[in-house]
Design a protein around this nucleic acid. Structure first.
Length: 812
DNA sequence: CCGTGCAAAAAACTT
DNA sequence: TTTTGCACGG
């Protein structure tokens, strides 16, 4: 996020040099054209790895260095905050630091910024809360219960996805209500929930994710003079990942690049006291120039309302648009591109586009079929170790999964094998209950109208304010017509016991203190105060439940992250902090953590990254493992029913393949644990779309030659036969049936301290016993504090790297 | 009002 | 397999 002062009225710079030749250096002809072209609308169709970020940053740098635009006249939209930060950095580097005032941000960050400034126009207060998916869910859940509508079988998930779709299509409550089928009781039930949800958000002074975009569009449409501020200011709008924009985002862009009518322009300039902007002959301010970059083959967010037509029909939308195709790939080997091209060619309704490279065919793609998720994970771990032995850094290796559930076996095996890894996304830090509790306090301090936040913490830590009391408070709030927060100010009004009154008064005082602090103290101090004064932190610390200990530590971690934020943005207010957290994306944690390891002194060796295919978009790695390439997983079973679902899954697979620079591994398992029991899996149809000679199948049973023709899959009948894992694995029998003697806990959670050998010290020559591998001799010890790794030669012949602290081993 | 214990439900992807 | 919701006794 950016917290720079906005410059709304800079006259356009005069001097126009050409584009600095240095900015064009090393670009191919198409890329050069994309940097240099000037006109109303430009579509850059950028295939994977075609250097689009480079083109985009140089295009911006060109606008600045030729003095065609001030930084403040540029708005660049990226998909993640991380991409925004990266782009800013690269532009600053190119132009030598003169990028202040430029807006480079995500759709959501940009819109929140606009809405906070113009909140009153929309009937909001500037301190509005942003509800994340979990908040919305909790709210809808309560509404369904309160409205006695559960008989229709409404589920929070179903209701929310429908509301989200409506909002992404800019169908607000009123227009939906107008068109609702009033003979359909279930439809009316849904309408009632939608209505209550909308009202609850409004009363709580809150917006959900979809509102952030939609309300901005409504703002611009309802208040042309407000829109004009931004239309007049931004002369160059650039949008990355255009194929993933939904209708609301599309509408927003259209509003932003719309010309300003003469009378509106006059009015705004008079009101603000600005000098007239450059006008067209008819007195209007011409619309901004628009550059969009995207690749319809990488559109993977249809489930979130992304409309591929936005990019496909760009030329109809903007008849004067110029289109540039970037097909030369600078990332992957030809073999990887061949596989990618072959797969995506099966999507029939796409414009022909073929990626090519001049950098050689490279290594074969490696395939592997495991017996289970664990076996597959073992293969991945073994291959990672041999890549490392061949000199590849862990940080250059990524493992992709379709669903977060797949990460478990990977983590378990990686921990056991001592493969350092980092999980991106998954159960996120900011989703943990205690962290959300802490944020509920802060939210309430910033936005007293937020009943949901108050309900969350009114009895956390335990204050003796139970359901009955909350109901009484709520009843009074409803009667008087004030937020719940207001009722806390007069507990004596309710005839409660003295203990309860005291508890309520204490909470009331605490929240007021927080609000007072927030006015002139940094966010982390407010955070520390509410955590301490509420006793929340102390209660967790004092608990004898080991999980509470971890929770207390998470709160400590939260405080230090808040301090970190303070260092990065010294001027930031509490609301800025809450906004930044609310809009933090999974992909954003990538670089933060990477910096942390990368900067570590003394040759710290980076980590393998595990993430979903969705999160992987836009990234690249030397070696990529795509796991779970199975029917019903990739393509996911939920996609089979939706029209276009398979095509989207195929694009997802395509995105995964094209992340790889040098090595690509495709793996699957013939059975996979889900929900507790085991289900059988078939190889993905996508595998048969890759020419057989591109893949080298590993493992004993693959000698028959893979299933490039679609056949060759092992029948279910021989699944029970005990087999050896193929690659450098031990003979533990891990893959065919579990060893009942093995204690289960040792497979368990990487985060919690389930297995902990404390400060067990091993030296070369020590004998140890491992639960899976049996006895062995320590051959080497790599000291690294708590991450000390021992290399052990097991008597069975296998040689393993083990993380001493957590490996299921004992010293003999 | 709080803690315990059992039954039931739940997991695609994400701003 | 893990998390959540509800009934019960204190």
């Amino acid at each position: 996020m950016t917290l720079l002062t906005d410059v709304f009225d800079d006259p356009a710079p005069r001097a126009r040099g050409g584009i600095d030749p240095a900015l064009l250096e090393g670009l191919n002809e198409r890329q050069r054209e994309a940097v240099e072209y000037r006109g109303r609308a430009l579509l850059i169709v950028a295939g994977a790895g075609s250097g689009k970020t480079s083109v985009l940053t140089r295009r911006i740098a060109g606008l600045l260095s030729s003095r065609e635009a001030w930084p403040s006249q540029i708005l660049a939209i990226t998909f993640t905050n991380k991409a925004a930060a990266e782009m800013r950095e690269r532009v600053e580097h190119l132009v030598g630091g003169a990028a202040d005032g430029m807006w480079i941000s995500t759709f959501h960050s940009a819109c929140v910024r606009i809405l906070r400034r113009q909140a009153e126009a929309m009937g909001l207060k500037a301190g509005f809360t942003i509800y994340d998916a979990a908040d919305s869910r909790a709210l809808v859940k309560r509404i369904i219960r309160d409205a006695d509508l559960d008989s229709f079988g409404f589920t929070p998930g179903g209701v929310l996805s429908r509301i989200s779709k409506l909002k992404n299509e800019l169908t607000d409550l009123e227009s939906f209500a107008r068109n609702v089928d009033s003979t359909d009781a279930r439809e009316l039930g849904f309408l009632e929930i939608y209505r209550r949800y909308t009202e609850a958000l409004r009363r709580a002074n809150a917006l959900d994710f979809d509102d952030i975009i939609g309300e901005t569009v409504y703002l611009f449409r309802a208040f042309p003079e407000v829109a004009a501020l931004y239309q007049r200011r931004f002369r160059h709008v650039l949008v990355d990942e255009y194929q993933d924009t939904n209708h609301a985002q599309y509408a927003l862009i259209r509003e932003l690049v719309r010309p300003v009518d003469a009378d509106v322009a006059d009015a705004v300039e008079a009101k603000q006291g600005w000098a007239p902007a450059l006008r067209a002959p008819d007195g209007s301010i011409p619309g901004a120039s628009l550059t969009v970059v995207g690749d319809s083959d990488q559109s993977i967010y249809a489930f979130r309302g992304a409309d591929i037509r936005n990019i496909v029909e760009f030329e109809q939308d903007f008849p004067e648009a110029h289109v540039i195709l970037l097909e030369q790939n600078y990332r992957s080997t030809q073999r990887i591109l061949d596989a990618a091209n072959a797969v995506i060619a099966n999507n029939f309704d796409r414009k022909a586009k073929r990626l090519f490279t001049t950098s050689g065919s490279g290594e074969p793609i490696v395939g592997y079929t495991g017996y289970s998720g664990h076996d597959e994970a073992q293969f991945v771990a073994d291959e990672i170790e041999s890549l490392r032995d061949a000199g590849m850094d862990y940080s250059q290796i990524a493992v992709f999964v379709r669903t977060n559930a797949q990460t478990r076996p990977l983590e378990e095996v990686f921990i056991r094998e001592g493969v350092p890894y980092r999980l991106v996304g998954g159960t996120r830090f900011y989703e943990r209950a205690e962290v959300k509790d802490a944020f509920a306090y802060l939210t309430l301090v910033a936005n007293p109208d937020d009943d949901l936040a108050l309900r969350r913490i009114i009895n956390v830590p335990k204050r003796g304010i139970g359901d009955a009391t909350v109901a009484a408070l709520q009843a009074r709030a409803d009667r008087v017509g004030v937020p719940l927060r207001e009722v806390l100010r007069e507990p004596e009004e309710l005839g409660l016991g003295p203990k309860l009154q005291a508890a309520i008064r204490e909470l009331d005082v605490l929240l007021d203190e927080g609000t007072r602090m927030a006015a002139d103290r940094p966010p982390h101090e407010v955070l520390m105060h509410v955590l301490t004064a509420s006793g929340y932190h102390a209660v967790l610390k004092a608990s004898r439940d080991p999980q509470d200990e971890a929770r207390a530590e998470n709160l400590d971690e939260l405080v230090s992250q808040a301090k970190e934020f303070r260092n990065q943005y010294p001027e930031a207010t509490l609301i800025d902090y809450l906004t930044s957290v609310a809009l933090f994306a999974a992909a954003d944690e990538l670089d933060a953590a990477e910096d942390a390891t990368g900067n570590a002194a003394g040759g710290a060796r980076g980590k393998v990254t595990i993430m979903t295919l969705h999160t992987a978009k836009g990234l690249e790695y030397d070696a990529v493992f795509i796991t779970g390439v199975e029917e019903e997983l990739l393509p996911h079973r939920m996609s089979l029913l939706e029209p276009g679902g398979i095509a989207e899954e195929r694009r997802l697979f395509y995105v995964g393949i094209t992340r790889a620079r040098k090595r690509l591994y495709l793996s699957l398992a013939t059975s996979r644990a889900s929900f507790g029991d085991v289900s059988v899996a078939m190889p993905s149809r996508f595998l048969s779309e890759i020419p057989g000679d591109l893949i080298e199948w590993r493992g004993d049973r693959r000698s028959q030659g893979g299933w490039s023709g679609g056949g060759g899959f092992r029948s279910l009948g021989d699944r029970g036969a005990p087999r050896r894992p193929a690659i450098g694995a031990s003979a533990s029998g891990r893959t065919s049936g579990r060893d009942p003697a093995k204690p289960k806990t040792e497979w368990r959670t990487p985060i919690g301290a389930v297995r902990d050998n404390g400060d067990l010290k091993l030296a070369v020559g020590d004998r140890i016993r491992h639960t899976d591998f049996g006895e062995g001799r320590v051959a080497n010890v790599i000291e690294n504090g708590p991450r000390t790794v021992a290399e052990v030669e097991f008597d069975g012949g296998a040689r393993k790297r083990l993380l001493v602290k957590v490996a299921p081993i004992e010293k003999l």
